[in-house]
Amino acid sequence: MIGQDTITLAKKIRMHALKMTNRGKSSHIGSVLSMADIIAVLYGEVLKKNSKNPLWPDRDRFILSKGHAGAGIYAALAETGFFPIGWLAQHYACGSKLSGHISHKGIPGVEFSTGSLGHGLPVGTGMAYAARMEGKKHRVFVLLSDGECDEGSNWEAVLFAAHHKLSNLIVIIDYNKIQSLDTVANTINLEPFNSKWTAFGWNVIEMDGHDHDQLKDKLNVSVHYGEKPICFIAHTIKGKGVTFMENSVLWHYRSPQGEEFVAAMSELES
C-alpha cells in the first residue's frame, strides 16, 4: 500500500472482499466489512512488519482468530505488498491456496491458520509468553469475534494471560453484536462484557472500531512487562459500508450476487 492512507486501505479491503465473496459465491462478507477499519489501521500503521521478509523475527504477530473473515486479511496482505493483488482472484476457487477460512500454507504474511473458533487466543498467548521469555519487544495481536467468545478455550487463555501478566498480548474484539444465526444478545449474551474482562484481570479499553483516529491512537501500544494484558472492545457494525448489509444477520452467510453485488460495489466505490 506504501503511501496510501488507512481510509483508502479500508475501502480497498472492503472492495476486494466484496469481489472475492462474489466470485467465490462465499459467505462472511458482513464479518469482513465489520473489521475492515481495524485491519486497515493495523496493516497500514500499527503493525511492525516487513513484506519482503514476512518472518522477520522482530515483527509484530497478528492472528485472525475469526478465521471466517480471512478474505479481509488476504486483501490487506496483498495491498501491503506481501503477495500480488492478482492472487485474490483465486480466493475460494478450485486448486487455490486462498481458503475461505484463513490459512498460512503458501501465503506470505499469514501468521497462523484458523477457522474453528476459539483457537487464536491460546496460540497468541503462547507466542506472547515466548516473546517475554526472550525479552522481546514485539507485540502479539489477536482479533476475536464477539460470537467467538462463547468458546470456553478463550477463557482458559484469558485466565492464563492475566495470571502471567502478558502485557505484550493485545486482544481486539470485533464487537458487532451479531453472530451466525441471531444477535449476540439473543444467543448468548456477553454483557456486561467490559466487566467480565476487567474481572478476569485485563486492561479493557472500549473504542469505536470504525474511527480511524481512535484506532490509530489506541492500538499502537508499547510493551511494558509486568502489566496487564490489554483487551480492546471495538464497537463495530456488521456489514459496515454497505447500507443494506449493515446490522443484518442475513449477511453473515449470504453471498453478494447479481444486483445486490452491483449495488454494494457502487456504494463502496462512491
Binding site: P122, T125, G126, M127, G152, S153, E156, A157, F160
Partner: peptide
C-alpha cells in the same frame, strides 16, 4: 485446550 494452543504458540 489452552495448554495445546500455548504449546503451538511457543513452538511457532
Amino acid at each position: 485446550q489452552n495448554m495445546t494452543g500455548i504449546a503451538a504458540g511457543l513452538a511457532l
